[in-house]
């Protein structure tokens, strides 16, 4: 009988070692999964990058709203970031063009904020006096055919050059407004 007890005593350390090994393996296995949970496998986060981006949007009547091109377009969550954007939109007898270094488009390109060396020009088949505008940033509202900004602006309207701070442009009526600190000269 005594002999059997000794045998059992001798096996106890091995049993514990086995248990410890099993536990360590289990930890190793489950531990990874925990790590994985906190950092899930990156699903496709709807981020895409396109070169030579070009988009033309139409309204419900099939009339083109605008044409937007860019050297690069990168979508990020709800926004699309455009490099060297170029927006063209025809309103009544006028072709308006806006270019910049960068733009951020939201609401399915209904609202675009353009930044850095922003230039707006209007070529009107009726009004011979071309309009040129330059600023550091502006927001283009496609469906409202409106442009707004708080930034400093310079506008060349035919012979007259105006500068000021804060402005808006109504593409439909071909009106522009400079909100404050206006300085003008004739060239």
């Amino acid at each position: 009988m005594a002999f059997r007890i000794i045998k059992v005593r001798r096996k106890i350390p091995y049993v514990f070692a086995g248990l410890a090994l099993a536990l360590a393996t289990w930890n190793f296995m489950t531990g990874d999964e925990k790590i994985l949970e906190s950092d899930p496998v990156p699903e496709l986060s709807e981020e895409y990058i396109m070169d030579n981006f070009s988009l033309t949007q139409f309204d419900q009547h099939g009339t083109p709203i605008h044409r937007i091109t860019a050297s690069k377009a990168r979508s990020h969550k709800e926004q699309v970031i455009l490099s060297k954007p170029d927006i063209e939109t025809r309103v009544n007898q006028s072709l308006w063009q806006i270019t910049a270094e960068q733009a951020v488009a939201v609401q399915s390109f209904n609202q675009l904020t353009l930044q850095q060396q922003v230039k707006l020009s209007e070529q009107s088949s009726v009004n011979q006096q071309r309009l040129n505008l330059s600023t550091s940033s502006l927001t283009y509202w496609a469906t409202q055919k409106k442009i707004t900004s708080d930034a400093k602006v310079t506008i060349q309207d035919g012979l007259f050059k105006l500068s000021g701070t804060g402005f808006s442009v109504d593409l439909l009526n071909e009106n522009y407004q400079i909100d404050s600190q206006v300085e003008g000269s004739k060239h």
């Binding site: 209007e122 309009l131 071909e174 407004q177 400079i178 404050s180 206006v182 003008g184 000269s185």
Partner: peptide
């Protein structure tokens, strides 16, 4: 030359 508080252009 000219200065003013605000300006509005009505191109049409």
């Amino acid at each position: 030359s000219l200065t003013a508080d605000s300006s509005k252009g009505m191109r049409q």
